[in-house]
Design a protein around this nucleic acid. Sequence first.
DNA 1: TTATTATAGACTCATAATATCCATAATTAG
DNA 2: CTAATTATGGATATTATGAGTCTATAATAA
Lengths: 127, 127
Amino acid sequence: MKVSKGTDYALHAMAYLVSQNGKRDKLPVQELAGKLDVSSTYLSKILARLVKQKYIVATSGAKGGYSLPADWEDISVYDIIVAIDGELTLFEDSFNHGDECKIQRLMMEVEADMIEGFKKKSVEELI
Amino acid sequence: MKVSKGTDYALHAMAYLVSQNGKRDKLPVQELAGKLDVSSTYLSKILARLVKQKYIVATSGAKGGYSLPADWEDISVYDIIVAIDGELTLFEDSFNHGDECKIQRLMMEVEADMIEGFKKKSVEELI
DNA sequence: TTATTATAGACTCATAATATCCATAATTAG
DNA sequence: CTAATTATGGATATTATGAGTCTATAATAA
């Protein structure tokens, strides 16, 4: 029952991008990877998923790197988690007994609260 | 980010035991496994952990089986989850930057809410 | 053109969840 | 006492997934 390490990296990378916003233009993966103490090739892979969802912007070539998009303040922690780990579900009932299952329902309640908790946190608040 | 299938089995087994409480004395694993459509040897293994925590009582021998302990109404969904999956944590920060890490703190908040959600649900409410 | 930077795919490795099988211990019925 | 029934524990197999590496390719600035 854990958020993946990949999401951990992604959140910290986002936090670093946010912290450097306005000061620096683009941050190359090398630098981010150095900060996070992870290989740059692996971090690239993770960040590529954020790029695909437009939560960060990638610029190839010399002096390129990653930067925040215009609407970055709307991005939530939930968005990042889903981009990396996929849709967030606590439970998949092994038994196909319909909606009347109380266990299933309880899990979905707790899950909904958790999702709310992550949605109401903007990445802006991570620094 | 999921509760294990083992916990799913355990919760459903508990729910069935609760539902039969008062009506039937002891339920052999064969019967429970039949209900849950899982092999009885595997379910045994899972239920053994509940026995160890005294969330259910096992009786060997003919006419034996599993039953609820005297204080079964105090058992929460949280108890069952922890008995099977171990202590429930959403996040283990890969980076050892102390308590001041906002990401870590956010995760722990959401985690605490989730734990609360599971703790306040008694197994009695599962049926 | 060359150096720099991101992207994409194939691949490996370790670990954990899921599960089976069998031998053993406990208990009851007859 | 014996036989049948039931749970427990250990060894093992299988599979899925997360974590990470490596390399080739594409894009861009100087």
